[in-house]
């Protein structure tokens, strides 16, 4: 009896210790396990034409071994024009991909604009900022005469100087066609002494759902002008291909019939045997019941 009591007490003590352990582990919050995360801010300036720029900051924080985009963080933007002191131009909150964007209208009075995006930090994420400076520039794309194989477009880049806009030579330009998942690069080239470039886009490209080709010319992170972008819509020569796909279900014609037959025969055989065995198990119980009934009758 006494040994049973001791054993009972031991079990209770053992269970209590396990519960204490669970409680301790549950009390560990991620904040106590992680110190402040290091942040990393990057900034891209995209010139949209008409002196307007889009400033996009990406805020990430180091979690484990990777930098992960952070949502809901406030980013402040500043600009310094030529030698004029830096002024705040606005703020934005990062989206779920870690991006925060604002648009800013350059006034056309300065030669360079130095932008800064700053994240002030908080209790869990450290502060960081990123800078980029651009000279105002304009990228334009216009329809040129098509040849038998390609659509052709004139691309022109002009940069801002004390004398106004002048053509810029030797700027690498990429031309894309917007597709559903990402932009398809179709042409790369460099501007000539007149700041011009003849871009060729394959003529057999099918259009999008609206039956248009959305052609985008882009300069990416140029040392002087930052990123530039312009687009033009074009009617494609080839119309999109519409596939009449049957519904992908097991009861349609598209279902692999031979596979279905094999599958149902095999599974039916195996599960049929299982069912038979289950019936045998039920039979064991009923055999005993019958035996008991028999002995009662006798």
């Amino acid at each position: 009896m006494r040994s049973k009591q001791i054993s009972h007490r031991r079990t209770v003590r053992w269970m209590r210790n396990v519960l204490l352990l669970i409680a301790t582990m549950a009390a560990i919050s991620p904040d106590t396990l992680h110190a402040q995360h290091r942040s990393r801010v990057s900034l891209e300036c995209l010139q949209l034409g008409n002196q307007e720029v889009e400033l996009t900051a990406l805020v990430r924080a180091r979690i484990g071994r990777s930098y992960v985009p952070m949502a809901g963080l406030k980013v402040d933007y500043f600009v310094a024009r030529d030698s004029i002191e830096e002024v705040r131009i606005g703020s934005a909150e990062t989206d779920e991909r870690g991006f925060a964007s604002i648009r800013y209208m350059m006034d056309g009075t300065s030669l360079t604009y130095a932008f800064r995006a700053s994240f002030a930090g908080n209790d869990t994420i450290s502060d960081d900022d990123a800078t980029t400076s651009v000279v105002p520039a304009v990228l334009t794309i216009e329809q040129a005469e098509d040849d038998s194989l390609n659509h052709q477009f004139n691309v022109l880049i002009q940069g801002w100087t004390a004398d106004g806009y002048v053509p810029v030579e030797d700027v690498p330009v990429e031309v894309f066609v917007r597709r559903m998942l990402s932009d398809l690069k179709v042409f790369t080239g460099t501007t000539d002494a007149d700041g011009r470039l003849l871009a060729q886009v394959p003529g057999d490209l099918p259009g999008d759902a609206n039956e248009t080709l959305d052609i985008v010319a882009r300069v990416t992170e140029h040392d002087t002008y930052g990123s530039l972008s312009a687009s033009i819509l074009k009617t494609p020569r080839t119309q999109p291909i519409h596939h009449d796909r049957p519904e992908r279900a097991l009861w349609t014609d598209a279902a692999p019939l031979w596979m279905l037959i094999t599958f149902f025969v095999l599974m039916g055989t195996v599960w049929g045997h299982y069912l038979y065995i289950l019936l045998q198990l039920v039979g064991i119980k009923s055999d005993t019941r019958k035996l008991q009934q028999q002995s009662v009758n006798e």
Partner: peptide
């Protein structure tokens, strides 16, 4: 135990299964 009583029929059921 499913009321198993080691009856010949029950033994056969288990063996077959």
């Amino acid at each position: 135990a499913l009321g198993y009583q080691d009856l010949p029929r029950q033994r056969l059921r288990i063996k077959t299964s």
